[in-house]
Amino acid sequence: MNKRERYNNVMGYLFISPWLIGFFIFTLFPIIASFILAFTRYDVLSPPRWIGIDNWFRLLEDTRYHNSLKATFYYVFTAVPLRLIFALLVAMLLKPSTRLAGLYRGIYYLPSLIGGSVAVAVVWRQVFGSEGLINFILGMMGIKGLNWLGNPSTAIWTLIILAVWQFGSPMLIFLAGLKQIPDSLYEAASIDGAKGWDQFIKITLPMLSPVILFNLIMQIINGFMVFTQAYIITSGGPLDTTLFYSLYLYQKAFQSFEMGYASAMAWVLLMIIAFFTALAFKSSRFWVYYESEEGK
């Protein structure tokens, strides 16, 4: 090893040391610790007690846990596709570069900017309340409203709508992707007589598929981690229909202090997310189009 290489090695580790130290303390150690905790009973006050695989068996029998799985899957697999479709539609709408494009982008991004805040969650509870804005508007049209948040079949939809409303980030990513598609492709298609829908299916979607994959993975990961809105708007009710994974984990870990059990839950979540991320990657070779392959 010459002097220069040694210097670079020292400097490299010096520069990344803040992250590296943080990685060991705040990420790697906690991940390993939570895996070990998953085999114990631990309530913070007394030392953890080894109970083997009891926690994992308990997951199989815990009906509330099953409710939370059901609610989470229902949420992820409706909110994510709807949000992505909506994001793509709005991106198509905002694609033309007009003088007002910047303003429009700002307006349509605004819901995403504020949608994750406590303020919006609090207001959302009012909007969908029995005497809220939605029922008021329905009332003006002569329709009798519902108790949206108290009804087990509608409560989760108030959260799904809130999630879809925050379409801003995937929309901006789609928009950047749409602008990358060369105009010449559309022009050639027009000459061949392909109309709007055909162009969308045969040009826009394939050219955009890498971006769709990226958005899909990020949104699935985010979807599984949703917490604040459900905590504030529905608190998991009614009848556990909105008891999202993070919410139940929070209740177990920090309200009833079953830290061992909650750690087992956290690890299952990690595996679920890893599974769906891998699935999206694996499936991508069937539907994601990479331009560079064309040259082979």
């Binding site: 705040f26 990420t27 906690p30 991940i31 993070s246 870990a253 839950m265 990690l270 997310i273």
Partner: peptide
């Protein structure tokens, strides 16, 4: 390793962090 942490759910970290 750093890029993987971007995809890591915070749930596997918060309990030991809290402790």
């Amino acid at each position: 390793a750093m890029m993987i942490t971007l995809m890591l759910p915070f749930q596997v970290q918060i309990i030991p962090q809290y402790i």
